[in-house]
Amino acid sequence: MSDNIYLPELARITHIKEEIGGERSIKTYRVEPVEGAAFEHECGQCAMLSLFGRGEMMISIASSPLIKEYKQFSIMRVGRVSAAFHELEVGEVVGIRGPYGNSFPLDDWRGKNLVFIGGGVGLAPIWPLITTALAQRADFNNITVFYGARSASDLMYKAELDHMRSNADIQLSVDKAEPGWKEFCGFVPANVLDKKPSPDNTIAITCGPPIMIKFVIQNLQKLGFADEQIYTTIENKMKCGLGKCGRCNVGKDYVCTKGPVYSWAQLKELPEEY
């Protein structure tokens, strides 16, 4: 199979968890290969998921590379394939090919402080990084996770985040005040500015809606973060994942092979085509 780059491997859904309900609901899926071992991946990489008869979609792998037996994906119901995915049940078989793209240079960050800043479903692409860093907690200094969504019911991975509180500084936020909410009210970038993480020996990693990323980066710069200390992961429409179908490029880079992970120092050199 491996010499056919377009042929997916079959994978069985072993676990489904509804993170968020509603029209644009988010569900988290665990898939395991039907035969053999799953491919290895690194933090930040993506995979192409197939629903035969519907098509393919590129989704970031949301589980840590340390977990070998399954891969996890958090999928928002937004389009043709993802809506059909949401109809699936445990035990059903889908297609998967990958891993695609580059990854976060986590090894270079050992001994440093890590600040994660996620918004909405944008927590999923940096989740492998968060969970891997926490699994290797002794290798890192302070770990802070900023995460926000429109409302409390739009926050994903809520239970997992609560579990992390003993090991990391978890800073949650909702866009607008609501009854019972005791943490920060306002947009994620504002929360970052409010808590003022120190740039000293720190790497900040952010993912979320483009507008959020933009203001997060601005605020990090205000706090003294250098461009090389800020990382993000971007997305574009993709069909092949292999740098051939020609649609996900940002300037000369195909996001599927050269991305999706960029430091702001790298990304600001590319045209704003994402």
């Binding site: 377009y6 008869g53 519907r54 393919e56 069909k239 092949c240 051939k244 179908c245 020609g246 649609r247």
Partner: peptide, 16 residues
């Protein structure tokens, strides 16, 4: 020019 699209073209719905 090499850009391409990938789609599923179904010939039957049951069985798929």
């Amino acid at each position: 020019c090499h850009c391409f699209d990938i789609n599923d073209e179904n010939t039957s719905s049951s069985p798929l």
